[in-house]
Amino acid sequence: MGKNVITWTVRVIVYLGLLAFFIWVFSNEYLNHLVENFEEFLVLLRQHIQLVALSSFLAIAVAVPSAIIVTRPKFQRFEGVVSTVVNFGYTIPNMAILALMMGIMGIGFQTAVVALFIYSILPIFRNTLAGIQSVNSNLIDSAKGMGFKPYQILFKVELPNAAYSIIAGIRTAVVINIGATALAYLIGGGGLGNWIFVGINVFDNSILISGALPITLLAITVDLFLRLLERKVVPRGARPSTR
């Protein structure tokens, strides 16, 4: 009961803040730049989405299988090494990764994808690892004792029970990624970051907001979508509220 009241209060405050922000934006006609340059907006938005989608997809494709591999009995001894490498990658500021990749690969779209990909691996890897490791060992034991084959233990017991944590990791990574993609402008990767940095350089709030606001809305929309996906994918009995 008390928890609900707090949740609702916070929610109302956030919505009121958003409303105030939009009133501020519209009363100052800050979105005029977007409306006047709608063609360019669509190009930047498409670039932004492509950068996010491609780098996130690569990150999922690498991080989830690696976390699965290092939790298999045969490869468990590599878990420490892999975790250290991945954690180390995340301690480098994302600006530095961009600069580093630019040094290696030059400027452009691909460099931005690779840099964003590297930065998205950790949350997904770490959550997948934690999710699988937190599956009760009694479940694995009884699955084994009932004659599950190793791949059946993985797909019928471990992954479904770790699904919530895995999707939470993907959500974190993608939402951070959408914001970080704004930096792609710095290495000629394109995206809505263009307008943000131009806006900063020429002290024009309209250009800046026209770039920043769509990024925020994109992040909120994607987060919502992934939350719905989580509801669909994670079995009722494997959600944290039930543990």
């Binding site: 009694n138 034991d141 699955a143 004792g145 004659g147 029970n161 079995p235 009995g237 494997a238 039930t242």
Partner: peptide, 29 residues
């Protein structure tokens, strides 16, 4: 694997799979 499927196995903490409903759990073998 075949041997294990021929021998019922029950442990103290029951080992029911939280991701499966009761029918799926009972009919898992």
């Amino acid at each position: 694997i075949e041997l294990r499927r021929k021998i019922g196995y029950v442990i103290q903490s029951n080992g029911l799979f939280p991701n499966m409903n009761i029918e799926q759990n009972v009919t898992v073998v």
